[in-house]
Write a protein that binds this DNA or RNA. Structure first.
Lengths: 163, 163
DNA sequence: CTGCAAATGTTATAATGTTTCAAATTTTGC
DNA sequence: GCAAAATTTGAAACATTATAACATTTGCAG
């Protein structure tokens, strides 16, 4: 059901955003969660950017909406969205990005281009499997996985410096 | 050569710290890097804790040494130690821990117990391999990997709440 | 309508990390 | 050795990210 991001390629991003919002409404309905106007707006703002947005970036955008928001407003919305699997937090960037696999059970793996800043979310079952194996080999009960790869995206390997 | 941490088990930690320092000196010598007193002291402080230490935790310990330090002092030392593979930064905790594989080429994977706070560093070649495969499958040139697993360590699965 | 729970507003503050420039120290070329 | 260059450290200010605490409003069940 999810709007699939086409990695590193031009696409109709408006459609992609509105698909994400539609999906989010469905998901929240199913979970009896309230996708309030603020939460929806935050999700929209995050989706409109291909690059992860910091909480204060979101805050600034809300402010320029005319919305008189303070940090807790944003952090609460982000917590909610994370809780319901609608956005991911990228720990190595202190920033948030729309989840391209919302509604599906998955562990995200993020390819972060250090040149253009774009991020691609993947699900790599083989990786997850190996991670689980490694953890349980130590008797460790894995709960949440943070997997973020920094490097160069295909485009930035050939044409450095753009975007 | 590295001082091996015995995962989640009691051991002579003083010996373990001093081994780490000895190793560090050797490594820096080989790399023509200067392990200055501040840097060495920061490394020691980090090793003395089994749990990741935040930059400001280190700062506080330096201060109680009588050393009149400011944040940049600590961050610079930490940068140096990271650069030379002597400590790792745990992005999901904003904290630092001694590298148990200093001197060996590796990509760390961290098992972080949410109950006791201890962290175990592993090297899991199979995981690395799968990560590389997944990245290159997208044409992505991976440079640095952040892989952090939060969950419960063996001890905390059976005796909750200790330590 | 009323009362409860969830969500939001508001203010203040904590925690983490960086910039900048000056001073001291170490290295290097001579 | 010695002076110039480079590296390291000191110090003050500031920037960014995140949370605490409490008041107010909103949605909803009975």
């Amino acid at each position: 059901m999810s709007a699939r991001a086409i990695p590193y390629r031009p696409h109709n991003h408006d459609a992609c955003v509105s698909q994400a919002l539609t999906d989010a409404r469905t998901i929240c309905q199913r979970q009896n969660a309230r996708l309030t106007p603020i939460r929806e707006r935050v999700l929209e703002l995050i989706w409109q950017s291909h690059k992860p947005l910091g909480a204060y970036d979101v805050l600034a955008k809300l402010s320029s909406d005319g919305h008189n928001a303070a940090p807790p407003t944003v952090y609460r919305a982000l917590d909610f969205l994370q809780q319901h699997g609608l956005v991911h937090r990228i720990a190595s960037l202190n920033a948030f990005i729309g989840c391209t696999h919302a509604g599906e059970s998955h562990t995200g793996m993020f390819l972060i281009c250090r040149a253009c800043g774009n991020v691609l979310e993947l699900t790599a079952p083989e990786v997850s499997t190996e991670v689980r194996k490694a953890a349980s080999g130590e008797g460790f009960r894995a709960e949440t996985t943070t997997l973020e790869i920094a490097g160069l995206c295909p485009r930035c390997q050939s044409e450095p410096g753009h975007d």
